[in-house]
């Protein structure tokens, strides 16, 4: 996969979460990549030049590489089979 494009995509995600509290923003970027990126894309991002990543994106990637579990940004709807906290997304 084109690593330049993957870095740009990760940075776009980071820029759009940047206005949140820092800790929340890092978790949100990490969660977004977890929930929407195919493994090849994640692997390509992990292999990309970290210097090209915005600091927020780099922190999120580091979080993911450590295998940290991040909270889901999108809760399940009550129309779905949800758990007690109204989630069906495994979070």
């Amino acid at each position: 996969m084109d690593e330049t494009k993957l870095v740009r995509m990760a940075n776009d995600i980071a820029r759009n979460f940047a206005a949140q509290r820092h800790e929340d923003a890092v978790a949100a970027v990490a969660d977004h990549i977890t929930m929407f990126w195919e493994p090849r894309m994640k692997a390509g991002l992990y292999a990309a030049d970290r210097k090209a990543l915005l600091p927020l994106a780099a922190e999120a990637v580091a979080l993911l590489e450590r295998g940290a579990k991040v909270p889901s940004q999108t809760r399940a709807t009550r129309f779905n089979a949800a758990d007690e906290s109204h989630r069906s997304d495994g979070a």
């Binding site: 929930m35 195919e38 069906s88 997304d89």
Partner: peptide, 27 residues
């Protein structure tokens, strides 16, 4: 709109379709 990573939902479809589903998002 149920996420593919949700094991319970995936299990529902796996039982019905008789296959094992990939838990990761696709392209």
């Amino acid at each position: 709109y149920r996420h593919i990573s949700d094991a319970e939902t995936r299990a529902l479809f796996e039982r019905d379709w008789g296959v094992t589903l990939d838990p990761d998002p696709g392209l």
